[in-house]
């Protein structure tokens, strides 16, 4: 089986991507193909990239506190692009009390500081290995 493709993206304005880099490296070493787009991406850029790269999952990293605004915005834009079946997960400085709200908005997993990277790998394996890649019947959005 070919490796799952994962997009790691940093929406918003904070420039601290140490965490994102740790995740990129951990996923690469776990056998995923990881695309990283750098800091200061708009939700629109992230959704467009997820479409063009046809990834199985999108991981969002944010430390500035704007996660309740930006994470759901990425999820909504991806749905608009026909990417509703793509797994979205997130991490960064996210208070426990916000996790439920994010999950309700379509962020399937939230991983804060100190999460062993093995947990994130296990989460992705459980979600992506079980279900094969989304069927080609999905709306084929053309850009």
């Amino acid at each position: 089986m070919t490796p799952h493709r994962i997009l790691i993206a940093k929406p918003g304005l904070d420039g601290h991507d140490r965490g994102a880099k740790v995740i990129v490296r951990a996923l690469r070493d776990a056998g995923f193909e990881v695309i990283y787009t750098g800091i200061r991406q708009t939700p629109e850029m992230i959704a467009a990239t997820a479409l063009q790269e046809d990834v199985a999952a999108v991981g969002l990293s944010l430390l500035s506190g704007a996660h309740l605004t930006l994470f759901p915005r990425v999820v909504d834009l991806m749905k608009k692009e026909g990417l509703g079946s793509v797994l979205v997960f997130g991490g960064g400085i996210i208070p426990d009390e916000d996790v439920a709200a994010l999950k309700k908005k379509g962020v399937a997993g939230v991983f804060g500081p100190g999460t062993p990277t093995d947990d994130i790998v296990a989460f992705l394996r459980a979600r992506l290995d079980a279900a094969p890649a989304p069927t080609p019947k999905r709306r084929a959005a053309k850009r």
Binding site: P3, V24, R25, L27, R28, D29, A30, G31, F32, E33, V34, I35, Y36, T37, G38, Q41, T42, E44, M45, A48, T49, Q52, E53, R143
Partner: peptide
Amino acid sequence: TGGAFLGDRLRIQEHALDAGVFM
């Protein structure tokens, strides 16, 4: 590991929203 870090987009991402560019 069979994994890969695909980092070329980092340099080209300013065109991410241009419908005339596909990467």
